[in-house]
Design a protein around this nucleic acid. Sequence first.
DNA 1: GGGACTGTTCCACGATGTGGAACGTCGGGC
DNA 2: GCCCGACGTTCCACATCGTGGAACAGTCCC
Lengths: 248, 248
Amino acid sequence: MQSVERAFKILEALAVAPSGVSDMARRVNLPKSTVARLLATLEATNAVERGPDGLTYRVGSALRGIAASIDGSIGLVEMARPTLARLASLTDEAAGFAVAAGYQVHYLAQADSDRTVQVRDWSGELIPMHLVPSGLAILAQWPAEDIDGYVSRALEGRTPRSITGPDQLLARLADVRKAGHAWGREEFAEGINSVGAAIVDGTGRVLGAIHVHGPSYRFPVAGDDERVAGLVMDAAARLAAAAARLSG
Amino acid sequence: MQSVERAFKILEALAVAPSGVSDMARRVNLPKSTVARLLATLEATNAVERGPDGLTYRVGSALRGIAASIDGSIGLVEMARPTLARLASLTDEAAGFAVAAGYQVHYLAQADSDRTVQVRDWSGELIPMHLVPSGLAILAQWPAEDIDGYVSRALEGRTPRSITGPDQLLARLADVRKAGHAWGREEFAEGINSVGAAIVDGTGRVLGAIHVHGPSYRFPVAGDDERVAGLVMDAAARLAAAAARLSG
DNA sequence: GGGACTGTTCCACGATGTGGAACGTCGGGC
DNA sequence: GCCCGACGTTCCACATCGTGGAACAGTCCC
């Protein structure tokens, strides 16, 4: 794909030395207007930023965050693992990490509690977003038109407690936005409760979600909802901050 | 530009967690075949590479080198400055760094000698490539069809010693390829001699060129050609190696 | 003051990217 | 063992998106 290759050619040239539009056009042998458009797109993506004079372009800080994941211990899912372990320890239940995948959440990591009775590992599973707190927390961050797209389809129910009505879901999302987290009580599977919060970066982009779940007979302990929800939200905020530090 | 934005959307998702084609298509909400093509292009660019299973994609090492330039002391031109200073000291003449810009070289940095009689600073200047050793060293790395394009135009002469014939230039480039460096003796300006070598990465891509120049009445000292050329080639090779280390 | 250079914007057009579909392979569940 | 769903890859008709030339205003230097 030509335009993607050209974009990277420009980035590689900028890695050598910052440059203006006309000079860059000469350096990469492309017409000036093409280069100007590519640089504008790269700038909108934060892959490129302007220097202090406002005319010279240089590599942008968004690439620092992307490059930081090359060393396998630093991608967000890897960064999240110790956080999950700590959450599991603090709550004595399992903690998990998920990302949005279309209209589903894809569970990518889980840290289990030390207890004998555990909920199975959901890593690798794809679940409709409205059925689980991680999904609800992510959905609550979506623009209205994307949410409209989600509710325009039939909402699958898995248990008698599942949300299956669009109005019900919209009201729920409004609650989630207000609270900053979502509780799910046997809406996805009988016998499982959980609480989730979205990991949102400084620009409003949703990087993923973090949650704690456990058997509904013991989780959440009565009166412990707010403490657990607070721990989950703190963890999500700390991961968002760590990702921001990597991007510079 | 849609495809460039989509490419970065994929990179940002990969920064969170590695992914296969179908999962990535779900995560970024694009058709599978579009994602496959984008990933193929990104892979060809080394912005993305495959994991050990050959199916999962992750961020590629080329981005490490690009991102490393964000901290202004690490882009290649900045990395070259201490090398230029050392070269200037070792040769007691000025040393410079240039990149290709169309059919010209663009001088980006220079370290001067401590001598009273100096050659002016060429930083910022654009010079036809065939007139200066940096340009010849870069041209010598070009594929034949690109060289054909260069020689198909009239070759500007600046002094009586300038190369102005295509056959002459082609023969010269063959010499440069064999020697690994290029000497220029009053071909660009009366009274200036210089020697240059290209900075070539492991894939054959030319990152720039490095040179030493001085007044022709004293540079090069008789019998000193090989030592100076050796220093310039060593410096170019060291910069290429440093750039390779940054890319991982 | 004029010329060369810069960055930005516009526009006709065609080439490039698009997305659906087909297909073969693989793995998991029954 | 078989079937089905999921995967990645490839192809192709088509239209839209990217292309590059040109115009223009601003700046700087001689």
